[in-house]
Each structure stands twice: as C-alpha cells, then as structure tokens.
Amino acid sequence: MASGYAHAQWWTAAPADYEDCAERVEKSSLANEPKAIALSNCESQFAGRRKRGGGYSYYDFMQNRSFDIAGPNPTAAEQKAIDEQYAAYLDSHRRSIILAAFAKKQSEAQQPANLDTDFREASAPPADVKPVVLPRARPKQRVAKGPDCATEPLACGWAKLSSGLKDIKDALFSTGPPRPNAPDSDLAHVSR
C-alpha cells in the first residue's frame, strides 16, 4: 500500500512561466509563509511576465522600462541587447547631468551681469525728468570713550597706567621739541 501515498509526478510538467508558477502556488494548500517563499522562487525562476496579446515582457528596474522578449526568460542575445540599452541609458543620463551642471554654471556666471544691467535699466530716469541733488549727510565723529571706572575699575586702572607709561616713554625717547611743562635741563640730560 506504500504506492498509494506516492504522488505520481511523472505526468506533472514544470511551470511554463511566472504566471503558471504563481497560479500553482495559489492553488496549493501551503500556509501563508511557505506560499510567500514559493512565490519568491517563481519570481527568481522567471524574469519575464506574460503579456495580454501573447509574448513576454521583461521589466528592467534600472532603466525603468520594459523590453519585449520571446520567452519567459530573456535569451543571451536579448540580455545582451538589454545590457547595451542600459549602457546607452547610463551614457545619456551622464550627459544630461553634465549639461545640467554646465547650464547652471553658465546661468550663475551670467546672472550677476544681468542683474547689474537690469538694475541700471530699471533705475535710469526717464529723459524728461531732471535729477534732484540731495545734500550729503556728514558722518558723525565718534569720540573715543574710556572705560567706565564704576563697572570696570581694573580696566580704568590699566588705562591710567598705560597713559602714564606713554607719557614717560615720550619724555625719555622723544626726538621732537621739548614739552612746555618739562624742565630743559632734564631733557638735555635724557637726550644725550
């Protein structure tokens, strides 16, 4: 009775294409996870998909386009033609990227010149309008403000000390005329 359990698979042929394989998996009594694995096997076994009017189509996701093929899988010649089309696709894609970068660079180079001429044209007064000359505002003179001794006593002390050192340096190493408040004898002694 062992022969009753054996399936006679000699008359069952292998699936002809992806759709046939997927149909067999759906009709089988497999659980969900094994069905998903079996469908994945169908996808890896058959690259082409059946077309409605007959024949097969191969979708190349790298080029985002489909190719007509004779059977459920591309032949060596069909695969070579697909690869050549992919090389041409990459070449045209590379060229379009280079041209876009070149056009962007040219527009950036021309843009400041265009803005400059557009500004001059837009700001040019009409021929019948006389320009009005406005007086120039004089720049305000800034007075150097010393440190605030109430909030920064150390800075104030340093300012006084550096001012005193400058006076001493000027008195000792000055080559100009003597200062009016310094005695002449002291300067004569220092200048020697």
Rank of each mutant, 00 (worst) to 15 (best):
R192L: 02
S185R: 10
K105G: 07
A76H: 10
K166L: 01
L30V: 03
G146A: 15
C156G: 06
D170A: 08
P112Y: 01
I82Y: 01
Q111H: 13
Y58P: 07
C42V: 00
S40T: 06
A22T: 04
A47P: 01
S40K: 06
V129I: 01
A81Q: 04
Q111D: 09
E152F: 05
Q141V: 07
G55R: 11
E108R: 15
S28G: 07
L134Y: 11
E33D: 14
L134W: 08
I97Y: 08
C21F: 05
D68S: 13
T12E: 15
A13V: 08
L115D: 01
S174K: 07
Y89T: 04
Y58I: 14
A155I: 03
S29M: 11
Y86E: 04
N32V: 01
E121Q: 04
T117M: 06
R120W: 13
Y89D: 05
A70M: 09
I69V: 05
K145R: 07
Q79H: 07
S191M: 04
S163F: 08
S96A: 05
N64M: 11
N64S: 13
L154A: 11
E78A: 03
F61C: 05
V132T: 15
A150K: 15
D17M: 07
Y56V: 00
A127G: 08
M62W: 11
D17I: 09
P183V: 11
E33S: 14
L115A: 02
G164R: 13
D170R: 06
N41D: 09
P153D: 02
A113H: 06
L30T: 02
Q106P: 01
K130Y: 05
G146E: 12
A113C: 07
G146T: 14
Q110Y: 14
Q45T: 08
A122N: 03
V25D: 00
P135F: 03
L154M: 11
Q9P: 06
L154T: 11
N32W: 00
R95I: 02
C42I: 00
Q110D: 13
P177Y: 08
S28N: 07
A144H: 09
